[in-house]
Amino acid sequence: MADLTQEEWAEQLKNDDNGVIIDVRTDAEFEEGHIPDAKQIDIYNGAEFLKQAKELDPEKNYYVYCRSGGRSAQACMLLNSVGVTNAYNLKGGITEWEGEIVE
């Protein structure tokens, strides 16, 4: 797992043809606004989160975010534990995101 600043995360994602964005917030938070093309997997739904995490392609690079960076850091560690080696946490979360947001 790597903690990336907003700038590092956005730049790395932009240049990554193998990147997938994962939003680990709740359904309600996701509906309030999310980063374009994000796949939502709610970390608070523990068993379902782990089930979906195990189904992810371990060859891809995952860019993970939440509201402020705490849940996504935890999610990155869980992804690592199920064999996903490239998980990148967005420090500061969507709260500090200056890029596009879909509402």
Rank of each mutant, 00 (worst) to 15 (best):
I41Q: 11
K91H: 00
E31K: 15
L90V: 12
I21L: 14
E7Y: 01
A87M: 07
A87P: 01
R71Q: 12
D27V: 10
A38I: 13
E98I: 07
G33R: 13
G69N: 05
F30D: 08
A75I: 07
Y63L: 00
R25V: 04
H34D: 06
Q12H: 05
I21C: 09
N86V: 06
I35M: 06
I43L: 15
A73G: 14
A53I: 07
P36V: 11
V24K: 08
K54I: 02
V64A: 04
T95G: 04
T85N: 11
G70N: 13
V84Q: 09
I21Q: 07
K51P: 02
L56M: 05
Y44C: 03
V84Y: 00
E32T: 11
A75C: 11
E103L: 06
Y44P: 00
V102S: 12
E48Y: 10
L50F: 08
I41W: 00
D17I: 02
V102K: 13
C76W: 04
G69D: 04
G33Y: 05
Y62A: 00
W9S: 05
W9F: 15
N89D: 04
Q52G: 03
R67T: 08
V20A: 07
D57Q: 02
I41N: 10
E31H: 14
Q74H: 13
L79C: 05
F30E: 06
E32A: 09
A73Q: 13
E32Q: 15
T5Y: 08
S68Y: 01
G46R: 12
V82F: 01
K51E: 14
L50S: 04
N86L: 04
G70S: 10
E7S: 12
N18C: 01
I22V: 15
E11I: 03
I94L: 06
A53T: 04
N89Y: 09
E48W: 03
E100I: 10
T26Q: 11
V84F: 00
I41M: 06
E96R: 13
G33I: 08
L79F: 01
E100D: 11
E11P: 08
G69V: 10
T26F: 13
I43N: 03
V20D: 10
P36Y: 01
E96N: 14
P58Q: 00
K14I: 03
S68R: 12
D42R: 02
I101Q: 10
P58V: 01
V64T: 05
E55I: 03
E96I: 08
P58E: 00
F30K: 12
V24R: 04
M77T: 09
A2N: 03
E8M: 10
N61I: 04
